[in-house]
Nucleic acid binder design. Structure first.
Lengths: 89, 89, 89, 89
DNA sequence: ACTCCAATACTTTAGC
DNA sequence: GCTAAAGTATTGGAGT
């Protein structure tokens, strides 16, 4: 039992086309949401700046906190080693 | 040596500390949301791949469509651009 | 109603066109050179990696050294302040 | 004068230190060159501006031309892309 | 594991 | 001087 001959001459492709459309739309919807949130982040920093905070330092803090304790320690060890070797202490 | 009547010896700094904490937490919350959405995007592509779609091509389509509002318009006005550049306005 | 006796019917525009061409070519030449150097930088890091160095740390070193002593000290002070406030010491 | 027993307690590290120094210096030298060229590009645009050209438009032209090898080809094959995405290869 | 490319984030510059 | 935009650098992920 197939979906009969001829009502639709390209059933498979039509289906795939619908799938494609759906995929693209879902992705685009999600990326819009992401953009909204990115803008929210910007707003937070802008407001912080207005309250006298140093935005660059704030971003650094967020970045440091994102590393877990172990990774951060390791990264700092390597860095210290290199800095000592170069007399940057 | 104290600023105002001393119930709290560092009222300003304490306030700033709270502000700082709040800023960082808001940013971190937002970035978590962003990560969630990024993962959702990945899921969409993974599912698409399971249905036989070429993920790289899908990403290309999304990228080209994103360009289109701005860059397509820009490309269409390239002649104008040249004319302006030549002072033929 | 044309400008001067007709050896060239659009002398001004032709001149501007030549200028334009020259500008574009000079810029493109310079950007090629820049790309070459960027690739050289990449090569240095790749070689360093092959010798067991941590490339990310190396990049951090270069970035730190680029800041002058004063700026770096200031940046570190702000950062320390924030980190202490957040108990990240 | 050999690095075996005891004349030098850290021969490997000393060697690494020299390597490190060399890497950093090479990178810094290359980045200086890059900066010089970037400044040259700026000069070209500044001079162009002095001759009445619209710098923003010039930058647009350069950017569009840079796109053309890759992206124009990509745009031209967008139908192919869709077909692949639909498994109509 | 490693290379390559796309995506994000940061920096600097131009315009209001 | 500040906001907006471009260009540049770094990071992460996908494919081999």
């Amino acid at each position: 039992m197939n979906e009969s001959i001829g009502h639709n001459s390209e059933p498979v492709e039509a289906f795939a086309k619908e799938q494609l459309r759906s995929i693209i739309e879902r992705v685009e919807r999600l990326e819009e949401e992401k953009k909204t949130i990115s803008d929210d982040v910007k707003d937070v920093y802008t407001e912080a700046k207005g309250n006298g905070f140093d935005v660059k330092a704030l971003r650094t803090i967020v970045r440091l906190r994102k590393m877990n304790a172990g990774d951060r320690a390791e990264a700092e060890t390597i860095l210290d080693t290199y800095m000592h070797a170069l007399g940057m202490v």
